[in-house]
């Protein structure tokens, strides 16, 4: 009898009796699909929020997350599981940068059109939890609004650097790999982002 255990690091381990040979590629592929699905379920919400903070548009953020997931599964699912996180965020960051490049080209070509920025990000979102009281909800929304505004004011690279280093907890090395810059640049962006956020939140209080 074959059973599949997925560890906290998403690496599938195969448990089987001594007589069974685990050369069955069908079983191996199924275990890998379960493993990568679990990984994606862990990162999808943060990835969406990162993309939404950058793009200020829910639909665009979902498209970016979708593209990133598909790319990871298609191209890198055969890599070791410990590489999935930095790889996924590298793809996500790349998609966000592509989004800005396309928008820049669009605005250059169609400069006479008004920019239709979607401010729905700052509107009150539907409450997904039934346990949040109205007071808590208002307080949380105010805090989120302040934080979102503060993050929005940051240059994109500082914003992404802060989210990757601080919120997602990537190392300096992994953050540099994701952003395609040096470790020194990561430290600089991170330091400046923290300073800017501190100033912005201090002003808003």
């Amino acid at each position: 009898m074959l059973s599949v255990q997925v560890s906290s690091q998403f690496e599938p381990t195969f448990v089987y009796n001594e007589n069974q040979n685990i050369q069955n590629t069908t079983f191996r592929r199924r275990a890998l699909n379960i493993s990568i699905a679990q990984f994606l379920s862990q990162v999808e919400k943060k990835a969406f929020r990162m993309a939404e903070i950058a793009t200020q548009n829910e639909a665009d953020a979902l498209d970016i997350v979708q593209d990133s997931m598909i790319k990871l599964v298609e191209k890198y699912s055969d890599k070791p599981a410990e590489q999935w996180r930095p790889l996924f965020y590298k793809i996500l960051h790349s998609r966000i940068m592509d989004y800005f490049r396309r928008r820049k080209v669009y605005r250059t070509l169609f400069f006479w059109k008004n920019s239709e920025r979607d401010d729905s990000h700052f509107e009150i979102q539907e409450n997904a939890s039934n346990n949040i009281t109205p007071e808590r909800q208002v307080a949380a929304e105010n805090q989120l609004r302040q934080v979102s505004l503060a993050l929005k004011t940051l240059p994109t690279r500082q914003q992404q650097c802060f989210l990757l280093r601080s919120w997602e907890g990537l190392s300096v090395k992994d953050t540099a790999s994701v952003m395609g810059c040096t470790e020194g640049s990561v430290k600089t962006h991170y330091s400046r982002a923290k300073q800017a956020l501190k100033n912005a939140l201090a002003i808003s209080e």
Binding site: R49, Q125, S129, L144
Partner: peptide, 10 residues
């Protein structure tokens, strides 16, 4: 605030 915002996703 960011962690809370995830909990409040629609």
């Amino acid at each position: 605030a960011l962690d809370q915002s995830i909990e409040q996703l629609s």
